[in-house]
Amino acid sequence: MPATRIVCIPDFFVNPGESVAGQYDAEAAWLKRAHDDGAMLASACSGAVLLGEAGLLDNREATIHWGYVETLTNNYPGVKVKPGQSLVLSGEAQRIVMAGGGSSWQDLALYLIARFVSLREAMEVAKVYMLQWHDMGQQPFAALMRFRQTDDAVINRCQKWAERNYRTPSPVAAMTKLSGLSGRSFVRRFARATDMKTIDYIHALRLEAAKELLETGDLAVEGVANEVGYEDASFFGRLFRRKVGLTPAQYRIRFSALRRALSRG
């Protein structure tokens, strides 16, 4: 039997954040042997979880669909996840390549064609099938909020308040007052319950609302900033760019047209 040169690992169902330990031992062992024998391993989306099960991501960079980042970080503590990147090469001689979510598998296919056939053929495939390289990565597509509802009744009440009142001035101070805790105690308890700082939680709520306004309306960027609770439009623009990977104007151009096209009929 000829040696395996390339192994492609597709996505499969796994609950985000949960462990699959013991469920795919035979597959993980086979992947480890194939890699040890010199094969290139290529995963798409949640397929990277099987690379983790095979022990091939320890102290290595990786990517995965943004919704499954915690599946890697929770279960394979040695992995260095790059959630903003749609394609990551890793390991000895870069024989492990991972694509993030959705259509980033197209980037993976083009990369494999370029590496194992030729760059010219990869370019021809891209042109024939009108494929666009996802050079902006996954960040603009990712939801900033994990909306993790906690069993802590005090923090849960504050989360629900924030979802309705994130536009108000000084929302963190208002949440602290609502909790009945001291400022320091509330900050620690909120972070423990949600894995987010209080101010980051408010920013995420506001930016998700801003994304929807940019997709659905023609309100100027300054107006969007004010609508979601920011008085300083320049600060809003810098924060949006840092968290989303695009400026508000760039985001509107890319996603408002998509929303209009999908809402027809």
Results as ranks from 00 to 15, higher is better:
residue 152 D to P: 02
residue 209 A to L: 09
residue 181 L to R: 08
residue 149 Q to Y: 10
residue 156 N to L: 04
residue 179 S to M: 02
residue 204 A to Y: 01
residue 193 A to G: 05
residue 151 D to Q: 12
residue 154 V to D: 05
residue 147 F to P: 09
residue 192 R to K: 14
residue 186 F to Y: 09
residue 156 N to C: 06
residue 170 S to N: 15
residue 139 Q to P: 05
residue 141 F to H: 09
residue 165 N to M: 08
residue 157 R to E: 13
residue 183 G to I: 11
residue 212 E to H: 13
residue 209 A to D: 10
residue 205 L to P: 06
residue 190 F to R: 01
residue 147 F to W: 12
residue 167 R to T: 15
residue 139 Q to H: 07
residue 194 T to Q: 09
residue 161 W to G: 10
residue 205 L to F: 04
residue 182 S to M: 07
residue 205 L to T: 06
residue 197 K to G: 13
residue 189 R to M: 06
residue 180 G to A: 01
residue 200 D to G: 14
residue 199 I to W: 11
residue 179 S to Y: 06
residue 145 M to S: 15
residue 209 A to G: 04
residue 173 A to R: 12
residue 175 M to E: 09
residue 145 M to L: 15
residue 184 R to M: 04
residue 153 A to M: 01
residue 180 G to E: 08
residue 155 I to T: 02
residue 181 L to C: 02
residue 144 L to N: 01
residue 194 T to I: 13
residue 172 V to E: 10
residue 176 T to W: 02
residue 161 W to C: 10
residue 171 P to L: 04
residue 208 E to V: 02
residue 148 R to A: 14
residue 146 R to G: 14
residue 188 R to T: 07
residue 152 D to M: 00
residue 193 A to V: 03
residue 160 K to A: 10
residue 140 P to T: 06
residue 147 F to A: 15
residue 176 T to H: 06
residue 205 L to Y: 01
residue 143 A to R: 14
residue 159 Q to V: 06
residue 141 F to L: 13
residue 194 T to S: 03
residue 151 D to A: 10
residue 139 Q to R: 15
residue 155 I to W: 07
residue 156 N to A: 14
residue 194 T to E: 08
residue 187 V to D: 08
residue 203 H to D: 15
residue 183 G to A: 10
residue 152 D to C: 07
residue 178 L to T: 02
residue 176 T to Y: 08
residue 150 T to C: 03
residue 147 F to S: 15
residue 169 P to R: 05
residue 174 A to Y: 01
residue 158 C to S: 10
residue 144 L to F: 04
